[in-house]
Design a protein around this nucleic acid. Structure first.
Lengths: 204, 204
DNA sequence: ATTACTATGTTTCGAGTAA
DNA sequence: TTTACTCGAAACATAGTAA
C-alpha cells in the first residue's frame, strides 16, 4: 500500500516543508516522486511555494471536505454521573472561556449520555478526532485542570430542542461511550428527560 | 489528480458503505478499482466486511495519525549521544519540574534514538506539533535554559517495558530523526539494550 | 544544496465478462 | 445483484543525471 499524493497533501496540512527531498523521506517515497507531486499539487492550486511549500486555503478546504469528519448525528441515553461536571464548571478558569467560545454561559451542571448503537459509537470516536473548540487548561494552586474540547450541537428529545455542546477533556482518556453535555439551560427540565431517556444530538 | 485508496479509506471513515459499486461512484473511480481497493484494505486490516464495509479501529487509527494527532507509536535505534542530556538533567531548574509533570524523577541521563522508517519520521514530525507537557525554561547566572516539551510514553524492547517520556527542546531545532528519552530507570540496563538495538515507543 | 528531465521498468486502471 | 478475474493500455515510480 504505497503512499499517494494525498498523503503528501495531508502532510502539508500539518505544516510547511522545505524541499521535495524532505517530503519524500517523511511520506516514504522517492525525491522524484515527491517533486512530481509537489508540481501537480501546485498546478491544482492546493499548495504554494514561497520559502517552503505550504498548503493553500484551497488545499485545506479540499481536505476538510474529504475528512467531513463531523458526524451528523449521535444518540444515547441519559444517565446520572457522579456530579463531577458541576465541580469543573464552577471553576472560573473554565467559566471565563465559555461565553467567548460557545456563545452561552452553561448551566452549572452537565448531562451525561451513554451511547450504545455502533453507529453512534463510531460518531463519538470520529468526533474526538476533530479539534473542535478548545477550552484552555489552567493551574490553580496545586491542582492542574487540563484543556478540553467543545463541540456545539443541537439536543433533541420529546420533540423539544435545546442548544448545547459536547465537552470532552483532552488528556484523560474518557470512555468513548460516554458523552457529557453543556447547555445554557437545565436540560433535564427543558427537555423533560430523566435517566434512561433517549437523546439525539445534531452536531453543528 | 485521480483518487487513491486513501480516498476510499477516508470515505469509509465517515461511515459504512454497502458495495464496491457505491464506493466507486462516491470517490469517482470504476467499480473494479473500488473492489480492488476494498480487497487490499481488508487485507491490511484497515476495514472489515460484515453486512457493509466499515473501517476498523486499525484503519481509524491509521487515519487519525495521518490527520494530525498524537502518533500511536514510533520506533528507532539506540545510539550514543554526546552526553548533553545528562548535563541538562542535572539542573535543578528542570529537575524540580519533572515529578509534577511526569510523575517520576528521571534517571540522570537520556537515551537517544535515531529514527529511520518514514512512518516513524512522520510520527516524530507530528509529535512535535503537539503541545505535550511543557517544561518551563529558566535563567541561571548568565546562561538561559529554554523551555522543553515532554511526551510521556511506554518504551519497549526485548519484550520488556519501561515508562518514560520523550523530551524535545522547544526552541532549538533539533533534528527530527533524533528522539531523546527520559525515564525513572536506567534504560540501557532495564531493557537490556545497547547501541543499534531497536526500541519502540508508544505514546500515551 | 534543490529541482526536474529522460529513459526504463513497474504498477494500476478499467472494459469486458464470468461466477 | 455484487464481486472479482484477465489483459492491453495508461499512469506512475525511480535511477541516473543535468541544470
Amino acid at each position: 500500500m504505497k503512499p499517494t499524493w494525498l498523503h503528501a497533501l495531508m502532510r502539508l496540512d500539518c505544516g510547511p516543508i522545505a524541499s521535495s527531498d524532505k517530503l519524500a523521506q517523511e511520506v516514504g517515497t522517492s525525491q522524484q516522486t515527491a517533486s512530481r507531486w509537489l508540481f501537480l499539487l501546485r498546478k491544482e492550486g492546493m499548495i504554494q511555494k514561497d520559502r517552503d511549500y505550504r498548503i493553500t486555503q484551497n488545499g485545506a478546504t479540499y481536505l476538510s471536505q474529504l475528512k467531513k469528519n463531523h458526524p451528523a448525528a449521535l444518540s444515547g441515553r441519559v444517565f446520572s454521573g457522579v456530579g463531577e461536571g458541576k465541580y469543573y464548571l464552577s471553576k472560573p478558569g473554565y467559566q471565563d472561556q465559555f461565553s467567548g467560545l460557545l456563545g452561552f454561559e452553561p448551566y452549572p451542571g452537565t448531562l451525561n449520555l451513554r451511547i450504545k448503537e455502533p453507529q453512534s459509537m463510531q460518531a463519538s470516536r470520529r468526533l474526538r478526532q476533530n479539534p473542535g473548540l478548545r477550552l484552555d487548561g489552567f493551574k490553580e494552586k496545586e491542582r492542574t485542570f487540563g484543556p478540553a474540547r467543545c463541540y456545539p450541537c443541537r439536543i433533541r428529545a420529546n420533540k423539544k430542542t435545546a442548544n448545547g455542546a459536547i465537552i470532552v477533556p483532552e488528556r484523560t482518556h474518557y470512555p468513548e461511550d460516554v458523552v457529557e453535555l453543556l447547555s445554557p439551560v437545565f436540560l433535564r427540565k427543558a427537555l423533560g428527560v430523566k435517566d434512561k431517556d433517549a437523546l439525539r444530538l445534531e452536531l453543528i
